[in-house]
Amino acid sequence: MKQALALRHVDFEDLGTLAGVLEQRGYHIRHADPARDDLSALRREEPDLLIVLGGPMRATDVAGYPFLGEEAQWLRDRRAAARPSIGVCLGAQVMAVAAGGDVAPMGLNEIGMGTVSITPAGQGTLLRLLADAPVLHWHGDGIALPAGEVSLASTGPCAVQAFELSGHQLGLQFHLEADLDRITEWTTGHAEEVAQAGLDGKVIAAAAKAQAQAMKAASEAFFATWLDGLPA
């Protein structure tokens, strides 16, 4: 059985609807929490798929969160070995940093339901499946990709919403995986961030629940197609 390992930084920022897609494709899912689990021990298992999930810390704050440096090295090693990886939000930022890019504050928090614009470079990729699809945005940092890499999707505040790197690495700044039926866990867990952004958690939750089924359908179709395209 294929092995998928998810690095989870916050309990409610989990695999969400992606879990069902992985199970349908024969993956056995394991979770690790980098703040308390020894990543160096887990590296030896070389999972078939690594998913680095979201979190509130900055991807470059290795001094405050040393495990972020370990995650970046793991992603570099996996890219060199062409072992597939997915980075979501913080995970995408760590993926970009590991490849030689950077992250920096955008000057605002992009939080709530929205869409992404598919860039010309993204039109010929699987990102085209997400044109007009609802997605959940929840971040305040933006990605600067390394030289030679291009953004596949964007929004007004954020030029890099998606990218792909060699070695089967997919980075998504937005949360396509989130189970919106559990959105109140997000609005409660990130209540201070929501308040600082001048937003209303109840409004965010209502919009998310109204689009839960549409985003789940888009998520399942996108991730299934991406997984099916991986080498055997």
Rank of each mutant, 00 (worst) to 15 (best):
R78D: 04
W74T: 12
D200M: 04
A205D: 03
G148C: 11
Q123T: 15
K216D: 15
A72K: 04
A144F: 01
G189D: 11
Q196T: 06
R83Y: 02
P34H: 14
P157I: 00
A206T: 11
S40L: 14
G26N: 03
M113D: 02
N109A: 12
A59C: 06
A131N: 12
A178H: 03
V203T: 15
A131K: 10
D38C: 12
L39F: 15
D48N: 01
A92G: 03
Q3C: 06
S166T: 11
M57Q: 08
W74D: 04
G142F: 12
T155Q: 12
E45M: 10
A19T: 05
H31F: 13
A4H: 04
L165A: 11
E164H: 03
S85M: 05
E185Q: 04
W226A: 05
D14H: 01
D61E: 00
G107P: 06
V62F: 02
D61Q: 09
D37M: 04
M113G: 12
G114P: 09
P84T: 08
L75C: 01
M57S: 01
L75W: 10
A195Y: 06
M1W: 00
A72H: 02
Q196W: 13
G171A: 06
M1F: 01
A6P: 03
T187F: 10
P47K: 14
